[in-house]
Amino acid sequence: MAIQSIFIVSDNYAVLPEFCAGAKKLADSVTAVVFGDEAAAKEHISCGADKIIFCPVSEEGAPEDYAAPIAALVKEQQKAMVMVNNSIRGRCLAGKLSVYLDTAVLGSVNDLSVENDALFCHRVVYGGTAQRKESFTAPYGVITISAGIFEAPAETSGNAEVLPIAGEPSQPIRRISRNEKKEGAVNLVAAKRIIDVGRGLAAEEDLEMCRNLAKVLDAEVGCSRPVAENNKWMPKACYMGITGVQVKPELIVVLGVSGQVQHIGGINKSKVIVAINKDKAAPIFKNADFGLVGDMYKIVPSLIEKLS
């Protein structure tokens, strides 16, 4: 196979079956490194990995504290790939591992291919303007990858050997408190119709108008990154784009979104794109099937009336 050894490092057990199935196609041996106690690791014995190494993170500790022991484990192999779950903690682990293994991180990889026994990582650069294909030249490589890139197996089987990590965590940072964050979830990926709201929306209350349009069209509501991140008017899981959700509905109605490349990268697989924007020169119109140059505050209420 292209690679001898792949180490999957994940702060989320749920991705293991998919990542293991993907890794098995590329490497002879697959080791999953997980965070939690032995009992939790044993529950995932049939995830598809040959070995599961668990890092027993304490109540005060964090997965990131185990970067050095994980790097030492990887270094037992002369060459290896480390595949890290693309979460915030995962990215922190990936960065630390890359330094200890003296190699680059190729982040948010969206495809892996093998040519002449070499592994190539594919990822988006310049905000979606191009797809870059890269390979590691160092003995080790670290990538971050999200769920949904490989095909998840219908059922899992296997009987992994479960072992504790060797070495101690290092904990330079003390946690003062932690609080669960509660945000609603929507499934935009599966939505057939979407209303896409941008910063053209003047006030949070006006989301009601967009929701009403969604109702008459039987659509879900999503948004651009600043609407979620800066205005905090919608959960972060609702923003579309290359760094957000990538959708492929039959219809998307884009309201008050300028249409920067990063946003387009998330919606350009839609079948029909309708854009409403008051700026005639907004790039969204180049990416739309049908566009209205005008004020969404005039158009949307009148459209709701006509469609009801």
């Binding site: 303007t129 191009a130 870059r132 390979s135 030249t137 490589g141 180049k286 049908f290 140059v293």
Partner: peptide
């Protein structure tokens, strides 16, 4: 460096009809 670039290409463009109408009056809606 510890990685090398084999290729960097723009994704295939999806063709869009770009039918655009100016106006937010009754007729446009």
């Amino acid at each position: 460096p510890s990685a090398s670039i084999a290729e960097q290409l723009a994704p295939q463009q999806q063709e869009r009809r770009q039918e655009t109408i100016e106006g937010d009056n009754e007729e446009a809606v």
